[in-house]
């Protein structure tokens, strides 16, 4: 796990209409499962995972995934999508504590 939670995405800046493009995402996150105990105190370490990932394009749902405690730290999600026109791809990761980490990328359809 890294010290800070930071989302990263790799999106092609330009695409052809309807062409399949690969989107890569990675967020640094401990994905604490809630099953482990603190070695010193014996207390259960509270669960803290990214439980939902959503990608929208111009406000419309493009891709989403529910993540569960078995997913490893620093989850990497890759998907393929076809965009019909230029617009903004928005990515959101929802944490157990309610925080949402987001990032936006512009895709120009030539």
């Amino acid at each position: 796990m890294a010290a800070n939670i930071k989302p990263r995405v790799k999106v092609p800046g330009t695409a052809k209409a309807g062409e399949a493009i690969t989107i890569k995402t990675l967020i640094s996150h401990p994905m604490e499962s809630g099953q482990r105990k603190d070695r010193k105190t014996g207390e259960l370490i509270p669960r803290k995972i990214i439980n939902k990932f959503v990608a929208t394009f111009n406000g419309e749902l493009a891709f989403s995934a529910d993540l569960l405690p078995a997913v490893a730290a620093n989850p990497y999600i890759e998907f393929v999508v076809a965009v019909p026109e230029s617009g903004i791809m928005r990515f959101e990761w929802t944490d157990d504590d309610g925080s949402v980490y987001d990032i936006e990328k512009k895709i120009t359809v030539a």
């Binding site: 399949a20 394009f57 419309e60 749902l61 493009a62 891709f63 995934a65 989850p75 990497y76 999600i77 890759e78 998907f79 393929v80 999508v81 076809a82 965009v83 019909p84």
Partner: peptide, 8 residues
């Protein structure tokens, strides 16, 4: 929009 495939 079409999500074509997933490789998580």
């Amino acid at each position: 929009l079409v999500a074509l495939s997933l490789a998580a």
